[in-house]
Design a protein around this nucleic acid. Structure first.
Lengths: 218, 218
DNA sequence: AGCGACCATATTGTCGACAAAAACGTTAAT
DNA sequence: ATTAACGTTTTTGTCGACAATATGGTCGCT
């Protein structure tokens, strides 16, 4: 479940998605300079659409731009990762709180079903849980917040950066089973409509995840 | 103290700032359609720079855009305001927490001095505290978080929208003196390096502010 | 009269060319 | 040898024109 909710309609859309993917996957290296003319020939579109794509990448905090100089892919650093997780903790904590308030019973039911299927996967030893399953889980809770800005900030902005760190610094798992338990408790809090607890547990969950990742870097 | 940290260098910059101001101040009405050709003649620049400006406005969540159709200024609603304040609560709460951790003693000293000058203003009955002073206060704490993404999300994204609501739905004050006390307690918590309390107080402060505004709307 | 298809119109999307600014290499002076 | 100034070259910023898409109105059909 790779979320690309809106499908590209214009050429700039396609180029934006393609460029973003290439950067996140490391095809274009972190810190690299983005030459407009070069990209223009590579992707087979005019400089105007490259420019628009780069603008959008800048809004996603994936590239940085200086006037009259050009755009560079952001550099990855331990400090940057830490900042990112501080924001995730804050925003997703709020998302869990709002989800506990706004999710319908049906949506909560689906969330529980998702958890069940994950449980089966984990028991069978499929440990790619982290990547797909974890994202899917967080995805639904963020959507459950029903807060447009929150959703957009996380999906359009933060999540691709997080994935970029995951991919390029090579973090697969484990933390599978313990993360699963954390997810279970969060869902329980949401099902109980306990906003306070849902937020606290989500924040802890993300803090643990952050610590886990940073230990790997050290 | 109107923050426009970076000053415009390119024509697109200038147009972007101008357009944003005109929208926030209501010169261009909420919900209005933004015609590229029309704006092009109005602001005396080519459509390309208008397009870039609109793109940036879209990243700021000030306008919405549909492919092959065009851009509209966002519509203001009570629900939208509520969502905005949910984000402020989350993000600025985290900012206060981080400020308690990362601000230097010198910066905290300046913050206390700022509060002193506000105290004098309030005592002398100058009640435009809300607009300039309040923003300045929050401004410094957010900067104190030293989190690049956090700072950019709030300043480039949320704050202009908040101001748009303030200006167009006409919210001057009061809540001057009680807000001042809340500020005082927040600074105290930061000075004591009490991260937990700083976050809690900031979140409450923003919740109160939200309730105050929503009562005016009702 | 109401509804759907079609055409004219206007608006956005894309392109290539020109203008302006920065980056680079070369030369000259100390 | 280092540095400052100059000129060349490359890169980004801006523009106007063309292409593609949506919008709005008209005509014809039921």
């Amino acid at each position: 479940m790779t979320f690309q909710p809106l499908q590209p309609v214009t050429a700039a859309d396609k180029t934006f998605y393609q460029l973003r993917q290439d950067i996140v996957e490391g095809v274009i290296a972190a810190g690299a300079k983005l030459s407009e003319t070069e990209l223009s020939t590579t992707y087979g579109v005019s400089r105007a659409v490259i420019r628009e794509a780069i603008n959008r990448l800048e809004s996603s905090h994936i590239v940085e731009r200086k006037a009259n100089v050009g755009a560079r892919v952001v550099a990855l650093s331990a400090a940057g990762l830490s900042e990112l997780y501080q924001i995730r903790e804050s925003l997703e904590g709020m998302a869990a709180r709002l989800a506990a308030k706004h999710m319908t019973d049906a949506e909560i039911g689906e969330l529980e079903a998702l958890l069940q299927s994950h449980f089966k996967d984990v028991k069978e030893g499929e440990s790619y849980y982290q990547e797909a399953g974890d994202v899917d889980f967080h995805y639904r809770i963020i959507l459950g917040s029903k807060n447009k800005h929150l959703i957009s900030m996380l999906f359009d902005g933060i999540y691709h950066l997080v994935r970029m760190y995951r991919v390029q610094l090579g973090m697969a798992g484990p933390r599978v089973t313990t993360a699963f338990d954390e997810h279970k408790h969060i869902v329980k809090a949401i099902a109980n409509r306990d906003e306070e607890l849902a937020e606290i547990l989500m924040r802890r969950h993300i803090m643990y995840s952050k610590n886990n990742i940073q230990n790997k870097l050290a």
